[in-house]
């Protein structure tokens, strides 16, 4: 069966004055119908760019320099702007860390929701309002009628993010891309929003691309995980397996560095050094200056993401 989304060898570059920065290199993954994939990695790894590429939101000096993005069988890179616009916000919705990227501060929730519905469907205001109310209830907003008349600034951060999720549901999308949707929220609210996303994906059979730096959140919500480092996916596999038995040295380091991974009060394991900037990518494997297992070949050649003996996808010469 054809997956809902298939990203193949996606490359994104930034044409800067003095050089071309290679921000995404050969990023490949699939999301099936109703499947939840977590994309994790540290700041600057390329997570947001990956989400933006799918929605064709990359702007100059950035551009997609290679690869393909198939959604429901169509190559998004080949579509016209009009066709993309139709898919974006209709079949694919995006939720950002800051709800105000989606919400308009000067319009009531009612206006924003009704307009969104009417942009995609030819129905009356009354009918649109009914759908809006229904979706607000769906995301457990208390007293939804009252919320319709409120402005975004009158709502708490958690409530705003719920409204954004309600808006993203208006067009019954097949895929939701959620980029750090709870990073700015308190842990109690984060837990509620994640419960909600999980429930919606299950009930509506929606695919989810969950972008976050928080491995624990990903491990609770997703079935598959892809770990990014310096613009590449370095490890991908079933979430539980990867978290319990990481194979790539970077994933191993990332998990070992979490406080949960060692005894209370003990020193944490740390990965030496920092992630390289795009302007100074090391030769060969980008992780080699920080890697304990580094051999000569790692400095010369780039390891590709390949299926290893365990069935896991890993980009490392030293994993058999």
């Amino acid at each position: 069966m054809q997956p809902l989304l298939e990203v193949k060898n996606l490359c994104v570059e930034f044409a800067m004055r003095s050089q071309v920065l290679r921000a995404l290199r050969d990023v490949s993954f699939t999301i099936g119908k109703g499947e939840r994939l977590g994309l994790v990695g540290e700041s600057g790894a390329g997570k947001t760019l990956t989400g933006f590429s799918i929605l064709n939101l990359i702007s100059k000096p950035g551009y997609i320099s290679g690869g393909s993005i198939l959604f429901e069988g169509r190559d998004l890179a080949e579509l016209t702007i009009e066709q993309i616009r139709d898919i974006r916000g209709n079949r694919i919705s995006m939720i950002f860390q800051d709800p105000m990227m989606t919400l308009n501060p000067v319009l009531t929730i009612r206006t924003q929701m009704v307009e969104t519905i009417k942009a995609h469907q030819k129905i009356s205001d009354k009918e649109a309002e009914k759908i809006a109310l229904d979706k607000l209830q769906r995301v457990y907003i208390p007293s939804p009628e009252k919320r319709l008349d409120q402005y975004p600034h009158e709502l708490s951060g958690g409530m705003r993010q719920r409204i954004v999720i309600a808006i993203s549901l208006l067009t019954n999308p097949g895929l939701i891309i959620a980029d750090e949707p709870t990073t700015a929220l308190d842990v109690t609210i984060q837990a509620e929003i994640m419960d909600l996303l999980l429930e919606l994906c299950r009930d509506e059979d929606m695919g989810l691309l969950l972008i976050t730096h928080d491995l624990a959140v990903v491990s609770e919500v997703t079935q598959k995980i892809a770990v990014m480092y310096a613009g590449r996916i370095v490890e991908m596999g079933p979430t539980r397996d990867v978290v319990d038995h990481p194979e790539h040295p970077y994933t191993r380091g990332l998990i070992a560095a979490l406080p949960q991974s060692c005894d209370q009060g003990q020193r944490l394991l740390q990965i030496p050094g920092i992630m390289p900037s795009l302007a100074n990518l090391p030769s060969g494997c980008s992780f080699h200056p920080r890697c304990e297992l580094c051999q000569d070949i790692c400095k010369r050649e780039v390891p590709v993401l390949e299926t290893k003996a365990s069935g896991r996808h890993v980009a490392c010469f030293m994993v058999k």
């Binding site: 842990v187 109690t188 837990a191 509620e192 419960d195 999980l198 624990a216 539980r240 949960q260 991974s261």
Partner: peptide, 24 residues
């Protein structure tokens, strides 16, 4: 109790959280 039940746990199955009603 509610705060601690909300901590996401690595490798854990999603537990049920204690939901806090209302707004702060």
């Amino acid at each position: 109790q509610a705060l601690l039940s909300a901590i996401p746990r690595l490798g854990g199955k999603k537990k049920s959280h204690i939901r806090l009603g209302g707004d702060v």
